[in-house]
Design a protein around this nucleic acid. Sequence first.
RNA 1: GGGCGCAUAGCUCAGCGGUAGAGCGCUGCUCUUACAAAGCAGAUGUCACAGGUUCAAAUCCUGUUGUGCCCACCA
Length: 881
Amino acid sequence: MTENTQQSPRNGGPNSIPAQLPTQYAPAEVEGPLYERWVERGYFEAEATSEKPPYTIVIPPPNVTGSLHLGHAFQHTLMDALTRRKRMQGYESLWLPGMDHAGIATQNKVEQQLAEEGKSRHDLGREEFVERVWKWKQEYGGKILGQMRRLGDGVDWSRERFTMDEGLSKAVQTIFKRLYDDELIYRAERIINWCPRCLTAISDIEVEYQDDDGELVSITYGEGEDTLVVATTRAETMLGDTAVAVHPDDERYAHLIGKRIKLPLTDRTIPVVADTHVDPEFGTGAVKVTPAHDPNDFAIGQRHDLESMTVMDERGVITVHGPFEGLDRFEARSAIVAALREQGRIVAEKRPYVHSVGHCSRCKTTVEPRLSMQWWVKVGPLAQAAGDAVRDGRVKIHPEDMSKRYFDWVDNMHDWCISRQLWWGHRIPVWYGPDGEIVCVGPDEEPPGTEAEGWTQESDVLDTWFSSGLWPFSTLGWPEKTPDLAKFYPTDVLLTGHDIIFFWVARMMMFGLYAMDGRAPFHTIALTGLVRDEHGKKMSKSNPNSVDPLDWMDAYGADAVRFTLARGANPGADVPIGEDWVQASRNFANKIWNATRFALMNGATLEGELPPAEELSATDRWILSRLNTVVAQVDAYYDDYQFAKLSDALYHFAWDEVFDWYVELSKTTFMAGGPAADASRRVLGEVLDVTLRLLHPIVPFVTETLWTTLTGRESLVIAEWPADSGFRDAAAEREIETVQQVVTEVRRFRSDQGLQPGQKVPARLDLAGTQLAAHEAAMRSLLRLQPAGEEFTATASLPVAGATVALDLSGAIDVEAERKRLSKDLAAAEKEKAQANAKLGNEAFLGKAPEHVVAKIRTRLETAEADIERISAQLAALPKA
RNA sequence: GGGCGCAUAGCUCAGCGGUAGAGCGCUGCUCUUACAAAGCAGAUGUCACAGGUUCAAAUCCUGUUGUGCCCACCA
């Protein structure tokens, strides 16, 4: 990285460009080349050997199949702002990019492609298919990486990682082996969530529940005296029933407990068992038990040693010999109900019944609970540690109330089903021997035997979240002891959406603490909300409200999109965004552009020391005082992840104070010339320099373009973050406030009297008794007031804040309108005064209110009294009609 | 069924114990020599409802209504 002192070769030095700057900012022209320059110069590359303290963020790896949506743009903007600021603050700042192989999602994508060629993955075979997926990745994957460049993401491309990379795969195998040896990974037959379309098991959190309309049918089981009625929404599973359960204390069925009854449509009899799980109040109080196809029933089966009968294959097709064999589960449902009805076994006709049904989060297919042999992570001890790290404050969740959700899950976590019946992913490193041996193979070990000898490797792959759980350290080289790992682990902040607390955050916590000797992978978890449209509606790909951020970036620039998102980023809250708002941000960028243009045209400079306060005008001291206040504010907001507030503070400081007041007030100074003008040029340069630095992490492109032009230096990316100099000048702030008050009041009068903004009016300013003498020229300029000539006759007189502005409108003013207006204001001020007086006359208030509140009320009273005096004087000064 | 959150200007949201704020939108006047993607001026709210605590409540407590999200093995 070069010293940030050389002059930019492009523009040949400071301040030479103003004439070349067009009147409008054109983001499309500068953003692309600027980004490439940053990358070429290696600004985003972090050095493990650096002496600087590290600051690390790993990117939540987007799916290789993904493209940039507003949610990414949002989170990336915040992460980019954090890492850019830290870099400016002198940290060795690393934002590590990469992608997730996204097992099911990617496999689905490629299978889809194959389907278009009329093939299935089985036509290719496993090896060829996996090769095909890699090829797909090469060609179509990672589209999002290019889009990240467009956004301006300052990531270290030299450290880009992919969860299926060799190194990361080794990390996966290493931790699998370690967990296996620690007996934290095991294999067991359980009821799992099965997706009959993806043909794989999925974990509990990959199931999305939604209320579906179903039908509850009541069926008579048994014969003769020994009958009871059960209700079900999944009639097809009755073929696999191996019991009926009732509550042990339920007298209605006491005589049946222990007996066997006939299962309709089959030649089987099944026992009636007593189990406290059954709620006697619900339905008939009798439950059909299908251990192989329902998690509850499986548990009952375990307790009563029932047989588990699988009646469907992996596609959800009935496998039981007989009339229903070969039917899809939903066809079978109707067919079975029809058959039961024929036998007169349907007691109550189908009743509409809304109940919660699980769907595959990938393809929305209704999940089929299924008994199956799978691999599991025993989460107990891992989750305990993950919970404790937050409980004891080593890791902070921001905003804090999100931690409840974290604890709820971590403290009640079920074992995690990690095996997937897919081909794309990390293959489970376990080998099965000819004599039933099971051997887990570590990363540097050979398989225990060859296929010829009867050994086979487990065909399942791991849940994609297994590898992303290792992300904060696998990306840094773990399990090797690399310099990167030593320098950049633990990372600092994890910034991500609250929707993946369970999927990803909790798992990184578990694995990080486990693999890295109890060192949590980050000290702060900053959770963001979801991006929504301008009416707060959820954006989804299927909705017409879905927006491609690339379109907005093309139209308004990346900075505009970034600023809009940052400005909407209230901690943990959802972020609404609409095109109008992006436009407004574009306008802001343009405003900064033009203000800088103005500054350059007027010779704003950074050369030489900032003059000492005593050599500066009140206007200059005021803006410097405000500037430093804002620096401190912005720092505080950054440290609290208050992006909306810091963006807003900068927006208002820049636009309202610097551009609308300071720049306008300076115009007079510049025109007058002399040492005062020179000082102001230096101050304006300073104010813009610092403001651009402060804005840079959020709107990097426009600030970089302007700053390099202003300063002639190489880049703002590697410039220093501003520090609060501590300079404050309360007197100057008060003085300028008074100027603003006078100006605003006279403008109001002019506007109310229907004077055109540009119309010059002769005026006499009486500033005796105020500090405003120095500002007379500026005020006259802002207010379009001419010197009073010989003929001057005051037709209106406006006393305000101790000053009096007498105007010659050379004609009658609208006295009535003005009187009406002033009377209204007067009434308001008097009411205010009365209220303040009432408070100050209240002993209870005086006795209990804190001093600063009482002081505030006193000030309020004084202000009201001053207003009354001012307005009364103005009324008195009105010419008689 | 449990948990959490939210109800403030036309819209989207800040504020969370001491006189109601922002952006966009709206009204009027302006091409005032950086910017019309602009400038200036202006209008706009019984802070969901009902109780309570307090000298003081949009802000704290209780309840009601509406709304959103998360969790759960609702046959």
